[in-house]
Design a protein around this nucleic acid. Structure first.
Lengths: 129, 129
DNA sequence: CCCAAACATAACGTTAACGTAATGTTTATT
DNA sequence: AATAAACATTACGTTAACGTTATGTTTGGG
């Protein structure tokens, strides 16, 4: 494990573009890649995992802002009672929102189902003469 | 029921801005409000319902493009076997995507739960001396 | 040491979904 | 008829999350 992954590989392995990596780094969503003076940036295995986690959360519809609120949970523990209590509040809020979203989606799902069945019924009627 | 609702009321009752109504009308997401020559636009009861439905679908993360693919289902039936079969395909695709999203959200939910419990546990340990 | 491939930086471009003036016209009320 | 409130139209502005040149620098293999 060389653990000195360059941006080309890190982005390829995470399924994003180099531009995305730089962008995330610029907004502090991923830790800055180390470098020697003026040279290139070197990332680690953890960066890859972190990037994958980010894309996964994005698929849930979380914005990068929202992601930056929780992403650290997956990699580091906030220290101190203070921080943990604060994070806990955020988590509970997300849990609530997530539950609501799941409900909404299930509602939507059953509407879809109803429409689909209606159409199938209609087409079946047309089918056999 | 006057059924000649002006943009101010229609937007207020649907919980959106007049700008949004005009925008949706401009992209054909809602039917154009009738008008006498050069006058104002008059909308109907159905416009209100339609707008509410749109905002509801938006909360599910559907884009306006995606919404325009399915919105008509709620108000008119596509006529002809041809059209119905096509719409049915779209619906099935959405059903699949919706199921995947629900799964992803439930996954996310359980991750949240796990984190929350871990934090609560930690804080409880700190609690009683 | 040389050179192509990969990288760095800066800056302008892009899409979605409206927001926000600015200005002129309708409509309803007095 | 006057006037204020609501409406219409045009056009420029905004945010998020990058894409896309353009140009110059680093790096690794021969």
């Amino acid at each position: 494990m060389e653990d000195r992954i360059r941006i080309g590989d890190v982005s390829k392995r995470a399924g994003v573009t180099p531009r995305t990596v730089r962008y995330y780094e610029s907004i502090g969503l991923i830790p800055p890649g180390e470098r020697e003076g003026q040279g290139q940036h070197y990332y680690t295995e953890e960066t890859v995992v972190r990037l994958r986690k980010i894309t996964q959360l994005k698929k849930l519809g979380l914005s990068l802002d929202e992601i930056s609120e929780v992403i650290d949970l997956y990699f580091t523990d906030p220290s101190g009672v203070q921080a943990k209590t604060k994070v806990l509040a955020i988590l509970r809020r997300y849990l609530k929102e997530t539950d609501e979203k799941i409900d909404a989606f299930q509602q939507f799902r059953s509407e879809l189902q109803a429409h689909i069945m209606r159409f199938e019924q209609w087409l079946k009627g047309k089918g056999h003469h």
